[in-house]
Design a protein around this nucleic acid. Structure first.
Length: 304
DNA sequence: CCGGACTCCTGGTTGC
DNA sequence: TGCAACCAGGAGTCCG
């Protein structure tokens, strides 16, 4: 499942190809992939056709490409093409005549001043992902920074230079919930999905359902550091793709599922203690953990 | 504020 | 071999 590292790999791969490119043609093959677009598909096509694309940005798992409208309002980057990969989305760069993947939902024909014509294919098996054209609005905390309106409620991610550790730790301490639920809450901290949540918790020796109330400041700090390590490592290796759903912008598969310690390792020995990793159903998904290294600690009594 | 249930969705896998 | 049931889960919504 694409999480922050995979989305960042897509952003970085897309950047040189689309920055400065002009959208010549847009084809929507499946309107369900526009579920986050406010208007009809004609509106999506109209807003993109003729537009010039600017360097892409990302927050958490959301990716967007600011657009300069064809009508030439100088510096009018008031809208962006927003991309969310969902469970199985891919953005593939292709030559104009390359065969289409069967699951292609949206095609952009673009022309780059240096690289020439190029095709940007949005491929998505499960259609949990989407594309949309959305308004760019200023962020509350960083001057001159703009973000799509539909991403405004998403918290900064731990790799964001403006991520505020102290603020995050304070917000976490105010939560009354389980730690994995908090890690997956994109309004608290973004970019973390099921895989890296399990990995960071394993590295921190914390049980997924550990109450945040029972998590010391020191332990929470360790967890945040492990989240960064896990994400950074995945980033360095080019993203995880054990199920081959995720493919980077050039079509080459991501990999390095071999370096996962807990996720998908049910029955395998814990790399730390050798006991079998367990998979449990939690929040409608699998949670993988070592029952010895990661044990639930009782919540601090609220009062009596 | 919190959590659970539900929705979107389809290809690959499993089970009979 | 064939087909149906099951499984994967990010994010949003609704309800108690």
């Amino acid at each position: 499942m694409p999480e922050l590292p995979e989305v960042e790999v897509v952003r970085a791969g897309l950047a040189p190809a689309v920055s400065g490119a002009v959208v010549e043609r847009v084809e929507v093959l499946d309107e369900r992939s526009l579920k986050r677009h406010a208007g009809p598909s004609e509106d999506f096509v109209d807003r993109l056709t003729g537009a010039t694309l600017a360097p892409p940005s990302r927050r958490g798992k959301f990716l967007w490409v600011p657009i300069e409208s064809a009508s030439g309002e100088a510096s009018a980057r008031t809208e962006a093409l927003v991309v969310h990969l969902g469970m199985s989305g891919q953005v593939l760069l292709r030559t104009p005549d390359a065969p289409r993947d069967r699951l292609t939902r949206i095609v952009l024909d673009v022309r780059h001043p240096e690289h020439g014509p190029l095709r940007v294919d949005f491929v998505d098996q499960r259609i949990f992902g989407s594309m949309a054209v959305d308004a760019l609005l200023p962020t509350a905390d960083v001057p001159a920074e703009r973000i799509p309106s539909q991403v405004a409620h998403i918290a900064r991610d731990p790799m964001d230079p403006h991520f505020d550790d102290r603020r995050f730790l304070a917000a976490l301490a105010r939560k009354d919930t389980g730690i994995k639920r908090a890690l997956l809450d994109q309004t608290l901290v973004s970019g973390i999905g099921n895989i890296y949540a399990d990995e960071a918790l394993w590295a921190s020796r914390i049980h997924y359902d550990q109450p945040t109330r029972a998590l010391s400041r020191a332990k929470a700090t360790t967890l945040l550091a492990e989240v960064r390590l896990v994400l950074g490592k995945a980033l360095a290796e080019g993203g995880t793709s054990f199920d081959a759903q995720y493919v980077n912008v050039n079509g080459a598969s991501g990999y390095f599922s071999h370096s996962l310690n807990a996720y998908g390792q049910a029955g395998e020995p814990c790399p730390r203690c050798g006991r079998a990793i367990v998979r449990e159903q939690f929040m409608n998904r699998g949670s993988h953990f070592c029952p010895f290294c990661q044990r639930v600690r009782a919540a601090r009594p609220v009062r009596s």
